[in-house]
């Protein structure tokens, strides 16, 4: 089901993506709990996560033929495209909301949502 390309490129990419999102979620939860707005490290972390999401979009579409044969390709691409939109929207919102802790709260919601979507994406890829 998974060729050598998957193991060398898709797997590491997915691990990096999930790790970045997990760190971002923890950071967002911490800042929200402390009542702090978006800070620079968080901004760069979010940028890195967004880059990984974009990489996932490109690689995912390029290697769509390697996925489980039963996978709905339209749904898969829709997920990939939807994922790309979430962080910029939440990010701009979070930065606009700098005077309160709830900017980071929004980012926390967005990041947790992204983690769920990535998990669903992996299920789709493997034909679940």
């Amino acid at each position: 089901m998974t060729g050598p390309y998957d193991v060398r490129v898709l797997l590491p990419l997915t691990i990096v993506l999930i790790a970045l999102l997990a760190v971002l979620a923890i950071d967002a939860a911490y800042l929200t709990a402390r009542g702090k707005p978006v800070d620079n490290p968080m901004f760069f972390l979010a940028c890195a996560a967004e880059l990984a999401v974009i990489a996932q979009l490109v690689v995912g579409i390029a290697r769509i033929g390697d996925a489980d044969a039963h996978m709905s390709k339209g749904l898969f691409v829709a997920y990939l495209a939807g994922l790309v939109c979430v962080l910029p929207v939440a990010g701009f919102w979070g930065i606009a909301e700098r005077e309160s802790r709830w900017g980071t709260g929004v980012l926390l919601v967005a990041t947790l949502g992204l983690l769920v979507m990535v998990a669903r994406l992996l299920q789709l890829w493997n034909g679940v």
């Binding site: 919102w93 309160s100 709260g105 929004v106 926390l108 979507m117």
Partner: peptide, 21 residues
């Protein structure tokens, strides 16, 4: 729409996106 209400808006927005798609 302010304070924790923002998080509520975010969750609704995310579910709206998911359900629409």
């Amino acid at each position: 729409n302010s304070g924790p209400g923002r998080m509520l808006v975010a969750v609704y927005g995310l579910l709206g996106l998911a359900a629409t798609g």
